[in-house]
């Protein structure tokens, strides 16, 4: 199950780069999570549908063309409908093309499974990626900026008046890495099968 036991980020440790870069706030993290889920699900579906016609010698290129096309589509749609978020995500939408989760699922799963299974696999992996991204975005925005989805939670609760201060380290990329480490730690201590011998 890609949600927990085979989670692309915490178990397969793929897609770390974007995970560090876009999770300083909740909104871009959610948009990124949705974008990756859409791309990996559709790419899996398309590749699975045409898998029997793809000549093996150019299969990576074919996968790349399909993924790039989908990513550019997502990018264009974001620019048209969510302009401010697309500016925040900047190059990271384009970099979904090189996100190892996408190519990894295509090569390992979609090339050898039926369209329906592949679609589910894509959605599952996308959600596995999403759950980590959204939790990071939630934690980092709440403790780093004192807000959620741009809404100033801490200010409204009167925490600043009580002497509370935001943790500046939370908005820096290294903190995302540390948080991912903590999540992996918690997951492995609860699920002993994941621990390496």
């Amino acid at each position: 199950m890609p949600f927990s036991r085979e989670n692309p980020i915490t178990v397969q440790v793929l897609g770390i780069c974007s995970c560090l870069a876009v999770t300083a706030q909740l909104k871009p993290a959610v948009v990124m999570a949705v974008s990756v889920t859409v791309v990996v699900a559709l790419a899996n579906l398309i590749i699975s549908l045409i898998r029997k016609t793809i000549p093996p010698r150019i299969r990576i290129i074919v996968q790349l063309v399909v993924v790039s096309m989908l990513v550019v589509l997502v990018d264009q749609v974001l620019k048209a409908y969510l302009y401010d978020v697309s500016k925040q995500l900047s190059v990271f939408v384009g970099l979904i093309i090189t996100n190892c989760i996408v190519m990894g699922r295509l090569e390992a799963f979609a090339m050898s499974h039926s369209p329906l299974e592949s679609l589910c696999d894509g959605v599952g992996n996308g959600l596995g990626y999403s759950v980590i991204l959204v939790s990071l975005g939630f934690i980092r925005e709440l403790f780093g900026s004192g807000s959620l989805w741009g809404y100033p939670v801490c200010e409204k609760l009167g925490l600043y008046a009580a002497g509370y201060e935001n943790n500046g380290l939370m908005v820096m990329p290294p903190m995302a890495l540390i948080l991912v480490g903590v999540i992996i730690w918690i997951q492995r201590s609860r699920n002993k099968d994941l621990q390496e011998k």
Partner: peptide, 19 residues
């Protein structure tokens, strides 16, 4: 292989242009 690649790229290009 050549034909396949050409058609694939053409389809992708047309889709992207329209969008």
């Amino acid at each position: 292989i050549f034909l396949y690649a050409a058609i694939l790229v053409a389809v992708a290009a047309v889709t992207l242009t329209v969008v």
